[in-house]
């Protein structure tokens, strides 16, 4: 089903996480709203295959990759389109040109970097935009280099490079929340030193503002790192109930704190099956 919304409601990193975790294939279109800085490009397109990013561009004319190649001066427009016609249908243009010996692997990488990493990373700073994910859109072979990037990698790179976090400010975890790991082993992502340090605290007990203090980071910085861990599927934000510091109360024992530790209370007494049966029967009478 088509997914639509506004980036101010559901941010790009969240959207990427959703598309990756759902192994989605299709076209994500982002229309910028009242963006005066980019008069020419109001639409951004990102193609996904099985949750991975395969191409990006700002037009649907199937000429974007060719233009990029021409811009590099590696080949003229016409030469590329002539060669492209010999490509098998569904074969990514980049791969086809490489197989024909026209482009090197290095050149392809550079193209992909320009087409996907650079363009997509810039979108993280968008204050708002309307998005639509169309799972029925065909993959555009002519826009594809044949290279792919996981949405997670693009998110990590984009958010690390992001200078102005204003667009995502509301999405950042609360400084008084803790982080809890949702992966069983050490993350396989290549984290940077700061991210590793914060990762070490994903045990659900320390508030992000305290992690910041511990690591000599600003609270904002720690929130941003925490957000990266969350949207890359490594951790979840968890509200913790702040226990008052002992200085205020002069608590000589820790019994007062124990009550808030999960599992300290016994939970509910189980109900019988006949109870459940009766309840369901009763409720069915209301349907």
């Amino acid at each position: 089903m088509t997914v639509t919304g506004y980036l101010a409601d559901f941010s790009l990193p969240e959207l990427f996480q959703l598309l990756e975790q759902g192994s989605k294939t299709g076209l994500l279109t982002i229309c910028t709203l009242n963006d005066k800085t980019s008069i020419n490009h109001h639409n951004h397109h990102i193609w996904f295959s099985q949750g991975q990013i395969v191409a990006a561009g700002n037009s649907l004319d199937q000429q974007g990759l060719m233009r990029l190649i021409a811009q590099r001066g590696w080949m003229g427009d016409r030469a590329v389109s002539r060669l492209a016609q010999t490509c098998q249908i569904h074969t990514p243009l980049g791969l086809c040109l490489k197989n024909q010996g026209v482009l090197t692997a290095e050149q392809l990488k550079l193209l992909f970097y320009t087409q996907v990493m650079r363009q997509v990373c810039a979108l993280f700073a968008l204050p708002d935009g309307w998005f639509q994910f169309d799972p029925k859109a065909p993959l555009p072979a002519a826009e594809m280099t044949g290279l792919i990037a996981t949405a997670t990698d693009v998110t990590l790179a984009g958010l690390r490079a992001l200078k102005d976090w204003a667009a995502l400010d509301e999405k950042l975890p609360d400084p008084s929340s803790a982080l809890i790991s949702v992966v069983e082993s050490k993350p396989s992502l290549r984290l940077n030193p700061n991210e590793w340090q914060v990762w070490e605290f994903t045990n659900g007990t320390m508030a992000i503002k305290d992690i910041a203090q511990q690591l000599n980071l600003t609270v904002a910085k720690a929130q941003q790192i925490a957000f990266r861990l969350i949207v890359t599927g490594l951790a979840e934000e968890m509200p913790i109930m702040a226990a008052p510091t002992t200085s205020a109360f002069d608590l000589d024992d820790s019994t007062a704190l124990e009550a808030s530790i999960p599992g300290a209370t016994t939970g509910a007494a189980p109900v019988s099956h006949s109870f459940l049966q009766n309840l369901v029967g009763f409720l069915k009478g209301k349907v």
């Binding site: 929340s177 809890i180 659900g204 979840e236 934000e237 968890m238 509200p239 999960p262």
Partner: peptide, 9 residues
């Protein structure tokens, strides 16, 4: 999702 994480824990 935050509420869910809280409850689950």
């Amino acid at each position: 999702r935050r509420i869910l994480t809280f409850m689950k824990q």
